[in-house]
Amino acid sequence: MRVADNLNSALHELLEHDPDVYLLGEDIADPYGGAFKITKGLSTRFPGRVLSTPISEGGIAGVAGGLALTGDKAIVEIMFGDFVALAFDQIVNFASKSVAMYGKSLPLRMVVRCPTGGGRGYGPTHSQSPHKHFIGIPGLSLYEVSPFHDNRAVLREMFARQEPCILFEDKVLYTRHMYDAGELFKWDVDRDVARVYLDDPAAADCVIIAPGGMAHRAMAAMRGLLLEHEVNCLLLVPSRIHPFDLDPVIPHVARAGAAVVCEDGPGGAGWGAEVAHRLHTALWGRLARPVGTVHARDCIIPAAPHLEKEILVQESTIRQTVLEVLGG
C-alpha cells in the first residue's frame, strides 16, 4: 500500500467512525480529490463534513478552530505546506494559545495537514519544509508522516492530545510504499519511534535520526555505508517530531556514541539543532563527536531539477555526514 493510500484510508475510516470529524480544504472534493489525491472519495461519502473551501487558508484554519471549540474534530488540508504561512495567526494566536489562555485547559481537536518538501520541481513557493516556524509553540504538536507509522493511529493520537497539531506530509512519500525498509534491513517500532537496522539495533556504529520524509534517503545512505564502508547504522524515525520524546532515542545514541540528525529544511534554529542540543545535554561526555546535522542548504528551493538537487538533502549528504561524525 502506498503512503497516499494509507492516508486516504485513514481519513475514510476516521470520518466513517466518528460523526464529529470534519475535513476542510481547497479542491478536496470529488472527482478532483485534492491536489495530491489524498482526499479521494471522501466528499462523496461524507458530503456535509468534507468541504471544499475557497482559497482562504487563514479562514479555514479559523473555521476548524471554531468547530474544535464546539467539541468537533477538524482536519484542514493546506494544499501546499508553504501556504500554511497564511494560517499562522489562527494556528498560533488562536488555536494553540486557546488551549491554555483561558485559565483552564480547553480541548481543541484540530489537525492541519501540510504537504511539504521538494524533489518535485515545483519551485520556491511550493517546496518548502516550514517545520521550524512551528517548533516551540506552546500547545502545538508537530507530526510527520512516515512509511512506518499507520496514519490511522497517528490521526487518532493527534486528536487524543486535545490540542492543535500539524501533520507534515513530505510529498515524495505519497507514492512510496508503507512498511518497506528494503531487503537489507529489518524494522520495528519502539514507542513512538520506528527503528530500521541490519540485525541488531544495539550493534550500530552510528544512529541516524530522521523524520518520515527523509527515511528513504536515510535508508539509501545506510545501505551505501554498510556495503561500501562497513559502517552499520540504526535509523530512528519519530512520528511526533515536536515535542520530541527522546527516551527511546537516548540509549541507542549512548551506546553508539555517534548520531546524525536529518531534516529537510535549511539548517540552524530548527529541528536538527534542537534535537542535537538535547542530545548533547543528555549525553555530554559520552559522545565521541558532536552530533552531526544534515539539512538543506540555506537557500530557497529552485525549480529546475539539477538546481533543486544542489540545495536539498541527498542520500550522499547523509552518508558523508555519518562518515564525518565517525571521524572518517
Binding site: 479559523g62 473555521v63 471554531g66 468547530l67 471549540l69 464546539t70 468537533d72 494566536n93 488562536f94
Partner: peptide, 17 residues
C-alpha cells in the same frame, strides 16, 4: 480574544457546527 478579526472565521466554524 485580542487579535482583530481572528474570531470571525472561528465564529463561522462554530456556526457550521
Amino acid at each position: 480574544t485580542g487579535v482583530q478579526g481572528e474570531s470571525v472565521p472561528v465564529a463561522a466554524g462554530v456556526a457550521l457546527h
